[in-house]
Design a binder for these strands. Structure first.
Lengths: 108, 108
DNA sequence: GTATTTACTCTACAATGTCGAAAATATTTA
DNA sequence: TAAATATTTTCGACATTGTAGAGTAAATAC
């Protein structure tokens, strides 16, 4: 049930953030990107939980990077969308786009 | 917690459908609109549950209409977005738009 | 008053959203 | 080199949202 093809609202934001960040998409950065762009301030835990679930669904993959020596800190885990992830993200966006198409938002 | 300001993915679709349908936004129609536009086939129960929750949050309001005599059938309950609902919908769309802005989607 | 049609309500459970605290692991410093 | 500090990830728990299916209501037709 609910295997593939649609993303939740936050999953959508996380997925887009990963695309934007290219080869610098790791937890903390993803959170920052969402904060800056979508003006949405979520906890880092929320981000990781979602990342983990997306990975379980095969929509993103990850690898642990070398620990960049910039004043301590644990090694980063980098994420990227899989082919399936890109496809699903496109589908989600497409549904929204078609839904909004031609509608000029006015009043209640 | 999570009072206002963001819509879930399906709540978003339902809200847009209500706007599109103007003065003809009742359960069955909303479902059809989502099916046609977003190519999403959900049960009527799913639609009503969401409608009810949006109403509880003050994002939509409803009223029961006169039973149009078109070969039987119960009276319809019409929905519309409240001012707060419009605002929230705009915010949700805005977040997505800003998130996507400038990103050309390519490959994984 | 029974069948038929159209539409809504209820109940239950699965999936997604979200937080806060804890654990890892690296560098600096006393 | 042990302790302090910084950066990032992992865990556990619970709230909200997504979704289906069966049941109920109410109106017209026969």
């Amino acid at each position: 049930m609910g295997q593939n093809d649609t993303l939740g609202e936050f999953e959508h934001l996380v997925s887009v953030a990963i695309m934007r960040l290219r080869n610098n998409a790791y937890g903390m950065m993803i959170r920052t990107e969402i904060h800056k762009r979508a003006d949405r301030d979520v906890s880092i835990g929320a981000v990781y939980t979602t990342l983990e679930r997306l990975e379980q669904k095969g929509l993103v993959s990850s690898r642990v990077g070398e620990p960049t020596p910039e004043r301590g800190g644990r090694a980063k885990r980098y994420y990227k969308l899989t082919a399936s992830g890109v496809k699903t993200l496109k589908a989600s966006r497409g549904a929204l786009t078609r839904m909004w198409k031609g509608l000029r938002i006015a009043e209640a």
